[in-house]
Structures are given as structure tokens and as C-alpha cells.
Design a protein around this nucleic acid. Sequence first.
DNA 1: TTGAAAGCGTTACCAC
DNA 2: GTGGTAACGCTTTCAA
Lengths: 331, 331
Amino acid sequence: MKGVTIRDVARAADVSVATVSRTLNGIEKVASPTRDHVLKIVHDLDYVPHSGARSLSSKRTDTIGVLLPDLHGEFFSELIRGIDLAARARGLHLLLSSSHGDPAEAAAALRAMRSRVDSIIMMSLTAGNDAVVPAAPVGVPLVLLGGNRKSPGRPSFVIDNYAGAFAITEHLADGGNRQVAFVAGPVDNIDARERLRGYRAALKRAAGAFPEWIIQGDFSEESGREAARTLAAAEPPDAIFCANDMMAIGCLEGLRDAGIAVPGDVALAGFDDIPITRYVNPPLTTAAVPIAEMGRQALECCADVIAGRQVELQHIFKPVLVIRASSAGRS
Amino acid sequence: MKGVTIRDVARAADVSVATVSRTLNGIEKVASPTRDHVLKIVHDLDYVPHSGARSLSSKRTDTIGVLLPDLHGEFFSELIRGIDLAARARGLHLLLSSSHGDPAEAAAALRAMRSRVDSIIMMSLTAGNDAVVPAAPVGVPLVLLGGNRKSPGRPSFVIDNYAGAFAITEHLADGGNRQVAFVAGPVDNIDARERLRGYRAALKRAAGAFPEWIIQGDFSEESGREAARTLAAAEPPDAIFCANDMMAIGCLEGLRDAGIAVPGDVALAGFDDIPITRYVNPPLTTAAVPIAEMGRQALECCADVIAGRQVELQHIFKPVLVIRASSAGRS
DNA sequence: TTGAAAGCGTTACCAC
DNA sequence: GTGGTAACGCTTTCAA
């Protein structure tokens, strides 16, 4: 049962190994009766080609590598789901690797994957990680996910953080909220910086030019809670825009503890639209990013690159403003 | 830069390919100076062994397959996180595949993986899926996750659903709640059935022998919402135990819509302790399963099996009762 | 401690 | 259409 080779099949079917190979790969012509006979034997013997041998001689692995900085939270599970969906549809396998906090680790992971995959989807969240996306080829085509740094010649899929943040800020300011505070993400995070930029631009454009009010956070729930404490200590703003949903959730709790009602006293919004946002009380206004869809397209892109097809280099996903109870107008 | 082989390294280092191989695999003895010299060349040339060729001659892939029924939700992302953590620590790669609703699909996935991995961690949620875990060997060692069906000779990691459900039910009954209703999971799901069994046993043992009250659900949020409607239509019970957290969350919303307060009018509890449970209002009482830890141990088990070490066959994880506000006593 | 050479299971090329 | 047979890049005896 174990270790059935193509020779065993060839022998049993009374044909050459070449014919079996052709039958299985289906590119070249094989006579229909021969084909059927071979397939029957393959099935009877439960023959599965040895992928190592196959990749050795064909130079293909039919596998896509997925390199992520982390696996915590729903963002990544959604992303992987989208990638997996597309991979299954194309008959590709997925080699997953994560937790690459620092560039050195990520570089090592990249090297380790090199010989096992045909292409790699790589997500580098922080600006610091740019170092691991070398200008030089790494051996296999790379498709980039997230971050805004351009890596010339490489397809990249990014979120339009600026536009999303702009829309949220505008919405909060429109809602009759004069003072909109911003809880920022990590300073070395590109997405976070873009969101900050969007906040600033929207404020400037808003009639009346409300002053900026920026609190430093780090994308964590705890930092959101802390921001709430800080904001509650002073004269609270009319609205708070947190650079991601987790901070908004922490902020929500912090405000509740401080006896500040949302949206009664302060309007609140986040960014990402992770599933939890629907369940908190009140449900959170946020900017929805089509995470799974991004993953799906990134994989399709890999497949195209492998096949030698021409691909778009810049794929930008515009977040959709999702208005929920946390920012219900209080005119 | 591309396609550096072991021969290139051997030539550059002026040694035989055998010596390079030995140096890299580190089992047999290589003189220290030779070793260092070879390693330097390997580094300079940025040589990475071809994994296909390696697996062809060594019969190892250093890869573990992970077969999941689905990728939706936090349960799976936690699981993968635990598995990935352990895999990284052991220098193993992870081949991920999911969305195997029906047995035929799962069987195909199993076949496709066979030649690419040294061992497979397989999760089969539903009783129906048992068919895809054949008694016969599948070519590589299998480690089972979830479900209670025994597959003789195969290590399996399961949750003690019975004990968890028993504990929850007991807690709800103890809290001064006379009538405890149960919202069940899919009938063909083993975990769901065990939880039902736990509920029944606990009710029987409770002083006063409260009558059973079972509503059929399917683990979905929507079915929880519907169960709430059904329960609210009659004289509501004192407490509701949903067979998983998602149903409990749906139930919570349904109760709110019906004007029934939790825990004021009805105590509520779920099962799994997915992260969301902490954020809903009120936070949900539930049975916590160490998901990531289960994944970690499953991978360790794979590594042990591959290495030929003896392993325990039955690993049972007892859920921990997590009491939150949704079941706060109302004596 | 090192080198030479025989596989490992496929694919792909070249004849027929 | 089909068969024979070099690669493919590595590990692993077996000798030296």
C-alpha cells in the first residue's frame, strides 16, 4: 500500500512510465482507451505521485508560501481563509509560516521556503520589516500584502488606509461632533501612519478646522483602554477615532468605566471591521476591509505570475465606511 | 543567484558533494576546518538545498500537514497558532488545507497531502466525517483532533465535552435556577452530542431532578437567535445553556429583542470560550478550551511519531468553567 | 575523515 | 501515440 511508484503503475497497465506520466499530467496526447486503462490502474493501486520527485524534474511544486507576521486575531484567519479558498480552486497547496517579528527571522523563513514553493505571499506590517523584502530576487516571485512601501516590480495588495481614515473622520465631524480625537497606532507601522494622515487631512478640510487631538496607541486593546482614561481625565472630546478596532474596543470599555456613554456623550469609531465589532455594545462604527477577498486575489496573482501571465502591480482596496450605533448622531 | 546546487558548493569549497551534504546534515563527522570552510561557501553562495531532491532521497519532507474542516472563526485561528508555534520551534513546515465539508473531499485532500508530508494533523468535527479516517493506513501517520470516535492506534486529542457541559449545567442549576434549557448543536456532531449528554447527566444528578428542555440548534449564531424566540414565546426558563458560544451570542441578542434581561431574567452560558465572549454585553459564562495548547501538543505528537518515539494515544482536555456576568446569581 | 557512485521517482526529450 | 532514457539534486552506502 505504501510506496507505489509510477513504475508499478506502468508495469500493471503494461505501458511505459512515460505514458503513465503523460496520462496523469494531461498535457500531451494519450489515446483514450490507454488513458482510461491507466487511470483505472492508478485508482486501483491508489497511486499518488511523489511530489518531491515531481518537483525535482519539473521545477514546480504546486505550492504557494504564505508568510505572515503573526497569527493572532481574526484579521489573519480571514486572510488565510481567502487565500485557502482560491488555492483549493486552483489545486495549489499552501505552506504557512508566521510569527516573524523581526526582519532576520522573516528573512530566514523566506530562505527556508524558497525551495518548497513556486511563489510567496508575504505580509509585512511594519515599516521596519521593509528590510526583509530585498530589492534583489529571492529565488521565487513575491507578492506583497499590506504596507505601502513600494517594492519595484512586485505585485502588492494594499488597503487605502488614508481614504478609510479620511471617511471615518469626516463622518465623525459631520455628525455634529466638533472635537474629534484620534488614537494612533504604532509609529513604525505604515498602515497606522496612513490612517493618521487621513485623519489629519479630513480635519483640515472640515469646515471650522477643528484642532487635532492625537493620543499615541499601539493597536492593542489595552492601549485603547488607556487612551480612554487619558481622554476622560480632560474635557472629553465629542468623538474618538481609534486607528483600529481592537483599540476602539478597549476604548469603549475604558469610557464605560469612566462613566462616559457611547454614543450618548462621545461618538466612537474604529478601523478594520473585524467580526467582534458587531457584537460589542454598542456595535462599532468602522472602516470595513475586504480581508478574505484581498487574500483570494493575492493568491490568484501568484498563480498568474507563475503561469507567466502579465499582472497588475498595484492593487488598492478601498475600505467601506460601516456606520453602526457607536457613532449615532446626537445633533 | 538562482539554482545554486550542492555541486556548485562542493566545487567552490573544493570538496566532494558528500562532504557538503554531511556538513549540512550534521550527523556524520566532518573535520572542523572543512566544516567551517564549507559553511562559509554555503553562506556566500546563499545555497539552499532543494527540498524535493532531499525528500526524494531521504524519504523525509520536514513538513506536517494540517487538515481542517473549515477556517471560519477564532477557534481555527487559535488552533493554527498553537500548531505553528510548535512547528517553528521544531523547524518543521506546515502544509495547510481546509474546507473539507464532505468525506470525499477530505479523503482527496488526504491523498494529495500524502506525498508531501511526514505526518498529518486532522480535525474531523462531525460524526459523518468518520468515514474519511479509514482504519487502513493512509501512507503517513495521522494525529486526530476533536471528535470522540476512536480510531485504534492513532493518537487523538479531544475535548472532554461531557465534563464541560456537566460543569456548566451544574453551575446554572446551582445558581438558584430551577429550569435550565439546553440549545443543542448539530445532531451529527460528536462534540455536540457529548455536550448534550453532559447536560442531561447533570440535570439528573441535580437535587429536585429538573425536567429537560431541549431546543435543537446547529452551532450557528442564527440558530441561537431562533432558540431565544422559541424560549421567549413560552414561559421562559430560568437559565439557558447553549452548546457553543456562537449560539449563546445569538441567543443573547434574541433575548434582548424579546425584552428579556440577561442575567436579570434569565442566566445564560455558552461553550468554547472564544475571544468574543469577553466582549459581548454581558460577558458570557462558558467552558474554556485550551485550543492553542491542544494544537501545540498535537504537533509535538506528530514530531514524536515521526521520530519513532512512543506516544500516548488518548489526550483529553478538560474545559475550565469560566463564570462571567451572564450567569451572575440572582438567588 | 573523505570521495565516488548508486539510487530515489518523476518529467521531458528524442526516437520510433 | 508510445517507449526508452537522460537528467533533476540530494542522501547514503561502500571504499579508500
